[in-house]
Amino acid sequence: MKFRRKPRENVEIGLAPLIDVVFILLLFFVVTTTFTRETQLKVDLPEAASGTPPQETELKQLEVVIDATGQYALNGKALVKSDLQTLTAALNKESQGDYSLPLMISADAKTPHQAVITAMDAAGKLGFSHLRITTVEAQATP
């Protein structure tokens, strides 16, 4: 007895839906991927090996001292809070509206950078035009 074989059906995979799925996946990955550029800055800070000491004047001077923890003192008086509003109010009160007075910022070497920037921001908002950052003269290493 001879069995007849059934004719094979050609099975085709539709490429159009497959391409659609691949493009949707590609679009999904492109949209959800974040591209970040890793950058590093190499900063060589200058030393204050030479400089001119501040000249003694008869004018009233304002000095903001910042300690290692970021606490502010204005002309020797410690401020209650170490934020921008408190420092701005203290500078405004101490200067009595005269923003042409020289302002010195003396910061400890271990002071957080943000504390110095906050002091400079307070001076800039009030309009101080004579700003000086004091440093210590570098010691020669033997």
Rank of each mutant, 00 (worst) to 15 (best):
M1I: 13
F3C: 05
R4W: 06
R5N: 14
R5I: 14
R8W: 08
R8N: 07
N10Q: 10
N10S: 13
N10V: 11
V11W: 14
L15W: 15
A16Y: 12
P17G: 15
P17C: 15
D20E: 04
V21N: 12
V22I: 12
F23N: 10
I24K: 04
I24Q: 00
I24M: 12
L25A: 11
L26T: 09
L26E: 10
F28H: 12
F29D: 04
F29G: 05
F29Y: 07
V31F: 10
T32N: 15
T34Y: 14
R37C: 14
E38Q: 13
V43N: 08
D44T: 08
L45G: 07
E47M: 03
G51L: 10
Q55W: 07
T57H: 06
L59S: 10
K60M: 11
L62H: 08
E63H: 11
E63I: 12
V64E: 07
V65T: 14
I66R: 01
I66L: 03
D67Q: 00
A68P: 00
A68H: 10
T69N: 14
T69S: 15
T69V: 11
G70N: 08
G70H: 02
Q71E: 08
A73G: 06
A73S: 12
G76D: 01
G76K: 05
K77P: 03
K77A: 13
K77Y: 06
A78Y: 01
V80K: 13
K81E: 08
S82P: 00
D83A: 02
D83G: 06
Q85C: 02
L87E: 04
L87W: 04
L91R: 00
K93Q: 08
Y99D: 03
L101H: 00
L101E: 03
I105H: 03
S106H: 09
A107L: 02
K110P: 03
K110N: 11
T111N: 03
P112R: 04
P112E: 04
P112C: 01
P112Q: 07
I117N: 05
A119L: 02
A119P: 01
M120N: 02
D121W: 10
D121A: 14
G124L: 01
G124Q: 08
L126I: 04
G127Q: 01
I133R: 06
I133G: 04
I133F: 00
T134Q: 09
T134H: 10
T134Y: 02
V136S: 02
E137Q: 14
Q139P: 08
A140H: 11
T141R: 09
P142T: 15
